[in-house]
Amino acid sequence: MDFMQISKKDFQKFVENLIQSKEEVVGVVKKGKHFAYDILEKSEQLCLDYTETILPPKKYFLPVEETLLKYKTGVASSYEATYGKSPKVIIGIHPGDMAAIALLDKSFSEGEKDSHYLNKRANSTLIGIYPTQSFPHRFSNSMIEKDAYKAADCFLVDLGNDYGIEVVTEKGKKIASAMKAVAGEKGLNEKIAQAKAKIKDEVSMPFSRRELSEFLHNKETHAEWKKRAEKCFSCGSCVLVCPTCYCFDVKDTVALSLQEGERKRMWDGCMLEKFANVAGNHNFRKLAGDRLKHRIFRKGKYIIDKFGMAGCVGCGRCSQACVANIASPVDIVQELKK
């Protein structure tokens, strides 16, 4: 990994030039009192000093709704695959979200390769940034280890007047040279390490991710699931804001002429009541407690066991989004520990 450096002013100039070059550039912007990823129209909109965005950046690779196939209604020979576009550059991804993209990369390329996701992913350069503000629900440090570096092309680290840059990939090298970043002075990597450690997580998982997987073993019948679920709305908010969730529903929609249509996939969530329904209205996860347990096991056990990567990246969005205030994985694990 190379360490480089750029002044904040020059970085903004680079972003402005990128926008002017007609490439689609996405970055973190203010949204009311919150933050969101959006297409940048001018560089001033970019806000890298943020707590957390409402939705994670996965929406650019696994859109909320995405057309997979087009067809003429009823004509099986007319099926045709369609591939959406993704931004050229995404700026400002926190390490947790970056680790989540690494997990999505793994899931969509393992076994049957999902070209709809992978095409978009290959098109984008990802510029991360280490958090400059604390977020009360974040516990990424205890979850993600080095996973963020499996997806990031480069990471920015706020050094006051400058950004330190960790250059991770060839794409990262290219973009660092495009922004005219300079090779780091002596001691830059120490300065970067110090700056990265400056913002501490306010909560933390009491286990490493491997320990968590082992801890959850045999916790399936714990009374906490049922008890906690008494307050659950099954509204799906916790999974819809989650950067590592990639479940989807598939639906056909046709034009008003009925002559042509599209097969689309859209985000879905295992916390919603009907998610595990099969024919005959039999539901394999009928109780909210079973669904809550499934979510935590998926985040804390199944994914790490299967892929060796974090199933929960500790971004804290679920805790923030849960109106009933029961979604926090840290709180749940603390209760299970008692």
């Binding site: 529903d249 879905d268 595990a276 394999f284 199944y302």
Partner: peptide, 24 residues
Amino acid sequence: LERHMKCGVGKCGHCQINRVYVCQ
């Protein structure tokens, strides 16, 4: 076992039983 294998390729999550994707 019967589950609703919506995508059939281990992605969509609908057929998941605990850690297992039934379609895979």
